[in-house]
Design a protein around this nucleic acid. Structure first.
Lengths: 263, 263
DNA sequence: ATCACTCCTTGATGCAAATCAAACGATAAT
DNA sequence: ATTATCGTTTGATTTGCATCAAGGAGTGAT
């Protein structure tokens, strides 16, 4: 059984860990409108004609820059808009009063954040920029209005929300059933897959988050994350230097993630 | 600080663990149409006039009975419909090829299942009836068509999906950061809260799932679940006899769930 | 360059939960 | 009633990860 197929039949766990699994795009300069945005294929549904796209441009009210370390929104903030990430990298997290923090996701260009705010009209998590970022502000009222007009957009919005539900299901599997090295393997495979879909290398990446943030997402302590990295490195599966990671043996990672079915 | 408030400020974790936190309803006989359904307040948005409700009845195509142990849908099935639970109790779960299973949720009357299927047009989890059940089959095409007509319904659908995302965020916090007894306390508080919203006792319940299924949901082994039950029982917090549970000290449960802020 | 700070790595030890194991209780079948 | 089956409880032991601790590497400020 081929590895790709093996992983497909196996829950597509690391593939579900991200918000979007879109077509490859090539980086180039862009204009403000969605219709000219090079992230369009990541953010917007396919199948619109030029006229429709014009209308769709109305969905984005403004752009907003967020400096590294700053919050795009935080727990308790009134919900008004969804945000499409244009550049930069975010984490979303929730925390308890006694200081325990859970990272609920990492988001990159082309992905949508803010869905948590719809149900109560207030956000229930924090969205923190892990590097300087720019987002498209999409007032949710616009999204809903245009959704009623364009069934394709409506379906797209539903798919985005459903994808997030399915992703979180996969994270529950990770947290509930997998061991430390399996979790980290799934994490690395997921990250590189998403980066690859954005035109980056499949085997090389620079992490935008600390060991502690990875650990928070994966339900383990930073020391355990570090040890798992070192183990992979000792085994010749990856090369690590601080936040630079080079994957030397993708198949080995896939086997760690899913030892039974890949062989 | 009052306990209710304490928990509100503390992430509302166990409150987020369910799909719906609706108003109390009283059981009585019902007709087939949504407009006459006594679960209407759980399933449908408020604010519709009689005429609107008539149209809304079109959303439900049929009813379907599911016997205990049978699946409403399973991984890989084509997605066509959402399902509103009329009676009975479900679990949703995903599994790996090497046999590890993760329960992703337990659903009761008035809650909606099937959202996972939207993104790929195929379901990615199994929905198993834990007791004989009846569901309203809502073809998703109907849902989308009527959503474009009725902004209130559109918003309602969005809220249901957002609520599920927020619930899963809370489960991630449970799985990533909490200890066995905290998880079980949160689980019991969540279940009783949802049952109470359906007109049942706040302090007494009969579990519909096994220790193993609870454990799968909470990321622990059945023995650990059993031990946690016994511990609560020894401490006089609950009374357990197999699947019957009576909560003797809700405040103590809340303290276990959130030791820091409740005192 | 030096210092301060943050992040990361590695080692030693402790512990919560998993695993292994056995017995018990409830339910259904014969 | 008797047996079989399944779910649950409880005890003994193991183990994977957390915790505690110390030092190293990278980065920015002065």
């Amino acid at each position: 059984m081929g590895l790709a197929l093996c992983l497909l039949s196996h829950l597509k766990l690391y593939q579900n860990m991200n918000l979007a699994t879109p077509p490859v795009i090539t980086p180039e300069s862009v204009k403000v409108a969605c219709s000219n945005c090079n992230l369009r294929e990541l953010c917007m549904p396919a199948g619109f004609n030029a006229n429709d796209m014009k209308k769709l441009d109305e969905i984005v009210a403004t752009r907003r820059r967020v400096k590294q370390g700053d919050m795009l929104f935080s727990n308790g903030d009134a919900f008004t808009s969804l945000y499409a990430i244009r550049t930069g990298f975010f984490k979303t997290c929730i925390s308890t009063e006694d200081g325990r923090e859970q990272v609920t996701g990492f988001q990159m260009a082309g992905e949508i954040i803010g869905l948590d705010g719809i149900v109560t009209d207030h956000h229930s998590c924090n969205a923190v920029a892990l590097e300087d970022a720019e987002v498209c502000v999409m007032p949710f009222a616009n999204v809903e209005d245009l959704s009623r007009e364009f069934p394709l957009l409506q379906r797209h919005v539903h798919k985005i929300m459903s994808r997030e539900i399915v992703r979180e299901n996969s994270v529950m599997m990770l947290l509930g059933n997998m061991r430390a090295e399996e979790r980290l393997a799934a994490f690395l495979l997921n990250l590189t897959q998403r980066l690859h879909a954005r035109g980056f290398s499949q085997t090389e990446l620079t992490l935008r988050m600390s060991r502690e943030e990875i650990g928070s997402y994966l339900g383990m302590k930073l020391e355990t994350v570090s040890r798992a990295f070192s183990k992979f490195s000792d085994d010749g599966i990856i090369e690590v230097k601080q936040r630079y990671v080079r994957i030397l043996n993708t198949d080995a990672l896939k086997k760690i993630f899913n030892p039974e079915t890949c062989n």
